[in-house]
């Protein structure tokens, strides 16, 4: 069996199984926990709990004005690589085919060259994130191995995808196999590291928002 056959076959199958099992395990484990009941009456004028939660989810998409200046780089850069990742993941025809085979869902693709350009910007943005994490004293102190693994398994699919598209460094089938293996690594790590924030961010923000809005705290 060649590397590409291994990547397209057993590696992807096992990775997808771990991804689905791990993600649903964590989601079900969190969502089925009993809700902490707040027995106090809601502050006058407090919005319904769900609306309060939803507001917080949206409001925290951008920092409060007093923090905007200090967090400008991280905010903008985070948007760049998150949107870049989304465009690359959901815009390139081969990726849509991958999703289509799994879910049946599909949509029109973007031009491959445009996705390639977005991929380059995304990789640069991810490198900037890493540089900041390595150079900022507080970030360095807060970071642990899992954070670097999360960065690595996010950046590798972008880097290997760009190399495969550009046919740089090795033959296409080798680069495609490495790209698929890097995606497999991403899927395996996803449920167990901070990448899980892709699903949990909405629930954690909403939970905070619901509590705060009940107490009349403006978010």
């Amino acid at each position: 069996m060649e590397l590409l056959d291994f990547a397209r076959g057993p590696a992807l199958t096992v990775a997808l199984a771990i991804f689905v099992l791990g993600t649903l395990w964590r989601l079900a484990g969190v969502l089925l926990l009993p809700r902490l009941r707040d027995l106090s009456p809601a502050r006058e004028g407090a919005p319904p709990a769900l609306l309060g939660g939803l507001r917080t989810v949206l409001r925290r998409m951008w920092p409060r004005p007093e923090f905007a200046q200090a967090t400008l780089f991280m905010t903008v850069n985070s948007y760049v690589f998150h949107l870049g990742l989304a465009l690359v993941m959901f815009g390139l025809a081969p990726h849509i085919l991958f999703i289509r085979k799994l879910s049946g869902l599909h949509w029109p693709s973007l031009p491959s060259n445009l996705v390639y350009a977005v991929g380059v910007v995304t990789l640069a943005s991810l490198l900037a994130v890493l540089a900041r994490r390595l150079t900022h004293p507080v970030m360095r102190l807060l970071s642990h191995a899992g954070d670097y693994v999360s960065w690595l398994v996010t950046a590798l699919p972008v880097a290997t995808g760009l190399l495969a598209t550009a046919h740089l460094g090795a033959r296409y089938e080798t680069l495609l196999a490495l790209h698929l293996l890097s995606i497999a690594a991403f899927l395996v790590w996803f449920p167990f590291g901070k990448l899980m924030h892709a699903f949990l961010f909405a629930f954690s923000r909403a939970a905070t928002g619901m509590r705060f809005s009940h107490r009349g705290v403006k978010v």
């Binding site: 057993p10 992807l12 199958t13 199984a17 099992l21 085919l97 085979k101 799994l102 495609l176």
Partner: peptide
């Protein structure tokens, strides 16, 4: 770009296992 094997059955089993594990944890 797609996998070479039909993973729907495996994903179904993994999903059921994940929900069961999550429910058990909760």
């Amino acid at each position: 770009s797609t996998g070479s094997t039909d993973v729907r059955k495996v994903i179904g089993i993994a999903a059921a296992g994940g929900v069961a594990l999550g429910a058990a944890s909760a």
